[in-house]
Amino acid sequence: MDIEIFRNYCLAKKAVTEELPFGPDSLVFKVMGRMFALASLNDVPLRINLKCDPEKAIELREEHEETILPGYHMNKKHWNSLILDGRLRPEIIFDLTDHSYNLVVAGLTGKQRKELENLE
């Protein structure tokens, strides 16, 4: 999977913005101002960080030990780094992106969730 496919998938989600807060090499995707994905633009192959339920994160790392690693420069309990070198099926990448987005949405305040629901 390349950055454009991943980027378009993220941006198609409700209320998602993209930013470069850590410099030109790290593309960050946020929902309602909170990060759910980060793509390292200079890494070959592409590396992305996604938020993950801690128990699920451990299972994924065991199942895909060469392509899903503890989150690089992130809280390793709550973030995974995915190496997009072709070994992970796109469905897994999209499912984990959805999981990350949903975790962040679940952590929003009630007011923020209401605002999100009211967006078109």
Rank of each mutant, 00 (worst) to 15 (best):
I3S: 09
I3N: 13
F6M: 12
N8F: 01
L11G: 05
L11K: 05
A12Q: 11
K13L: 15
K14V: 01
V16E: 04
T17S: 15
T17Q: 08
T17P: 01
E18I: 12
E18N: 10
L20G: 06
L20K: 15
L20N: 07
P21L: 09
P21Q: 07
P21N: 03
F22A: 04
F22H: 02
F22W: 06
G23L: 05
P24W: 02
S26E: 04
S26N: 15
V28W: 00
V31C: 10
R34D: 00
M35C: 01
A37P: 05
A37K: 01
S40W: 12
N42Y: 09
D43Q: 13
P45F: 10
R47N: 11
I48K: 03
L50Q: 05
D53Y: 03
E55D: 13
K56Y: 13
K56F: 12
K56G: 00
A57D: 07
A57H: 08
I58E: 14
E59A: 14
E59S: 14
L60F: 03
L60Y: 09
E66M: 06
T67K: 00
P70R: 00
Y72T: 05
H73S: 12
M74R: 07
M74W: 06
M74H: 07
M74P: 04
M74T: 07
N75W: 03
W79P: 10
S81G: 07
I83K: 15
G86A: 00
G86C: 07
L88P: 03
L88W: 10
R89P: 05
P90L: 14
P90E: 04
P90W: 15
I93Y: 01
F94L: 08
F94D: 04
L96S: 02
D98E: 15
S100N: 03
Y101V: 11
V104Q: 02
V104S: 09
V105W: 10
A106L: 04
G107R: 14
G107S: 13
T109A: 10
G110Q: 15
K111Y: 08
K111D: 12
Q112C: 06
Q112T: 08
R113T: 11
R113S: 04
R113V: 05
E115P: 02
E115W: 10
L116M: 14
L116G: 14
L116P: 05
L116V: 13
E117D: 13
N118G: 12
